[in-house]
Computed example of a mutant assay.
Amino acid sequence: MGAVLGQTEGGPCPCGTGEAYAACCGPLHRQERLAETAEELMRSRYAAYARGEFDHVFRTWHPRTRPADVTADAHLVWQGLEVLGTSAGGPDDDTGEVEFRASYQLGKQRGTMRERSRFTRRGARWVYLDGHEITD
């Protein structure tokens, strides 16, 4: 997955919260703190794909389900994230689900991807387990 062009440390976070990247997903990407909820981890993973922070994507993927390598399509540009709903995944939960829609551009083609992602805790850390794409 390619990066959003023009993203800086002081600019808005691609995850859609409206906060600056440096205060939002940046600390998670830099391993300064852990995500408190499944939704926060999902948003940080989206932002990591959008910014090209693939080490964060790999690190937050459950070892049982993650691929050996996380690769990127240099032509894919992530353009927006909309969280559609959550189930569990709070600070006191062990599992959670987040449904989202992400918009992208690939060359001249624009599209959206909708997924229901499952998360679980490994120790004190939320990790991505798997996701199921939803067709509209």
Rank of each mutant, 00 (worst) to 15 (best):
T60F: 07
A35N: 11
A72S: 13
A74G: 11
L41E: 02
H56C: 08
R33M: 01
T60N: 07
R66L: 07
A72W: 10
V77Y: 11
R64H: 06
E39H: 00
M42G: 02
L76N: 12
V77T: 15
L76A: 10
G52M: 04
A68E: 09
A68W: 04
A68V: 10
E36A: 15
Q31F: 08
R59L: 05
T60R: 07
H75G: 13
R30D: 12
G52E: 10
F54Y: 13
L76M: 15
H62R: 01
A74N: 03
A50L: 13
R33E: 02
W61M: 12
F54K: 03
R59D: 15
A48S: 08
F58T: 06
L76E: 07
E39K: 11
A47G: 00
G80I: 10
G52R: 13
R59S: 13
A35S: 14
E53T: 02
L34C: 00
D73I: 03
G52T: 04
H75R: 14
Q31T: 06
E39L: 09
A35L: 00
H56G: 01
Q79T: 14
L41T: 08
V70S: 07
H29A: 01
R30P: 02
V77S: 15
W78H: 03
F54M: 15
E36P: 10
E53V: 08
S44T: 07
L41H: 00
T60P: 06
L41Q: 03
R64M: 11
T37D: 08
E36D: 01
H62N: 06
R45H: 10
F58S: 15
A48T: 01
R33W: 08
D73F: 13
M42N: 02
P67Q: 09
A47T: 06
A47N: 06
F58R: 15
R64P: 05
R51G: 03
E39Q: 05
D73W: 08
A38W: 08
P63Q: 13
A68P: 00
Y46L: 03
A74V: 14
R43K: 04
D55I: 04
R30Q: 11
E53G: 00
R30Y: 01
F58I: 09
R33S: 13
H75S: 13
R51T: 14
L34F: 05
L41V: 04
H75I: 05
R51C: 05
V57F: 04
F54L: 15
L76W: 12
H62Q: 03
F58N: 13
M42I: 02
E53M: 05
T37M: 11
A72T: 11
D55Y: 03
F54E: 01
V70F: 14
E40P: 01
A47L: 05
L81G: 10
R30N: 07
E53K: 01
P63L: 13
S44I: 00
D73Y: 10
R33I: 09
R66V: 09
Y46V: 11
L81M: 11
R30L: 03
V77F: 04
T65D: 15
E36S: 13
R59W: 08
E53H: 05
R30W: 01
W78L: 07
P67I: 01
Q79I: 09
W61F: 13
A48C: 11
E32V: 06
P67C: 08
T65S: 15
A47Y: 05
